[in-house]
């Protein structure tokens, strides 16, 4: 095991996949010569050259569509959105073309691309740069989406995404890039559609994804120490496909569910999770399902207010106590 950053883990995944498969290439703004706006691709251009690591103009719609087209002939592009927020100018390519080409051709083609980049708030940059669109992606059958919460998952999910034959969005997080976790030296994959139980518990289940899963884990420890509550924490890892079994087994065991995500609440990922739980584990519930999401407004700029707007440990603990009462 090596202690490496989330950023380094993603870079390793990209590096290894570029070496494994000559069809894998990386494209995006500043990914090559500048080493990436967040240095995720640092050194890759120097190592692999112009053909494999490609700087683009600020033309997300064009390079997204180009990646989709290239994938039809067997290239496997990984495109970086400097911020996932910027994918919004490419939504037609991503939500119409990447997602539906296979369907509309009656299965004659597939689109093996990866769309990756940070999708998070909490960085004091205002509403246009703080989107968490995993719910929007998941709302488009044909697309897949994962939200790694730690370095181990980031590397394993990235490799799985690149090898996947469908379009996969990998939602990263700028606040995690510098955080470190243990990652094995030998090769591994984290399959899509498999959730991870971060912590076992018996009184209630917190279901979360992305950085919020880490905050939930922290909150769970505090709840245990300060309130004597045993909390199980499920990290979804993959939003679509979704590991329903792990969710349901945990809720059936604890009888209570708190759903935590950085999405805005309306039509957020957790709205769907909540539906699944009430439909398939209704009789096991000892109380209503609760949610902690971003406060329902565009992302505010002011730092102390934004830190309150997105879920934080204090808000998760309050939510958990309500859920138990």
């Amino acid at each position: 095991m090596a202690l490496i950053t989330y950023r380094e883990a993603i870079k390793q995944a990209l590096d290894e996949e570029i070496q494994r498969d000559e069809n894998v290439c990386i494209m995006g703004e500043e990914v090559a010569q500048y080493n990436g706006a967040y240095k995720v691709t640092e050194g890759l251009w120097e190592k692999h050259g112009d053909k494999r690591v490609i700087d683009t103009p600020i033309s997300e719609a064009a390079f997204s569509g180009l990646a989709i087209g290239a994938s039809m002939l067997g290239v496997r592009p990984v495109i970086e959105m400097m911020f996932m927020s910027f994918s919004y100018v490419a939504i037609d390519q991503l939500f119409n073309n990447a997602s539906f080409c296979r369907y509309m051709s009656g299965g004659l083609m597939n689109v093996p691309i990866v769309v990756r980049g940070p999708a998070n708030g909490g960085t004091n940059v205002g509403a246009t740069h703080s989107h968490t669109p995993e719910n929007m992606v998941a709302n488009h059958p044909g697309l897949k989406v994962v939200c790694p919460s730690n370095a181990y998952d980031a590397k394993g999910l990235m490799k799985a995404a690149i090898r996947d034959n469908d379009p996969v969005f990998v939602m990263e997080n700028t606040l995690l890039y510098g955080e470190k976790w243990e990652v094995p030296e030998e090769e591994y994959i984290v399959e899509l559609g498999v959730a991870n139980i971060l912590k076992e518990g018996t009184d209630m289940t917190i279901i979360s994804h992305g950085r919020c899963a880490m905050l939930s884990l922290q909150a769970a420890k505090t709840l245990e120490e300060k309130h004597g509550i045993s909390v199980e924490v499920v990290d979804l890892r993959s939003i679509r496909p979704l590991d329903e079994e792990t969710i349901l087994n945990s809720v059936k065991k604890t009888g209570r569910a708190l759903l935590v995500e950085e999405n805005k609440p309306y039509c957020g990922v957790d709205a769907q999770i909540s539906h699944i739980i009430q439909l398939k584990a209704f009789d096991y519930l000892d109380g209503p399902i609760h949610r902690v999401s971003a406060i329902d407004a565009p992302q505010i700029y002011a730092k102390p207010l934004e830190d309150w707007q997105i879920p934080n440990e204090e808000r998760i603990i309050t939510g958990a106590l309500k859920c138990l009462s």
Binding site: N124, V125, G126, A127, T128, P298, I300, Y301, A302, L305
Partner: peptide, 8 residues
Amino acid sequence: KGKGGSMH
């Protein structure tokens, strides 16, 4: 009101 920041 502190809602937009430098860019807005």
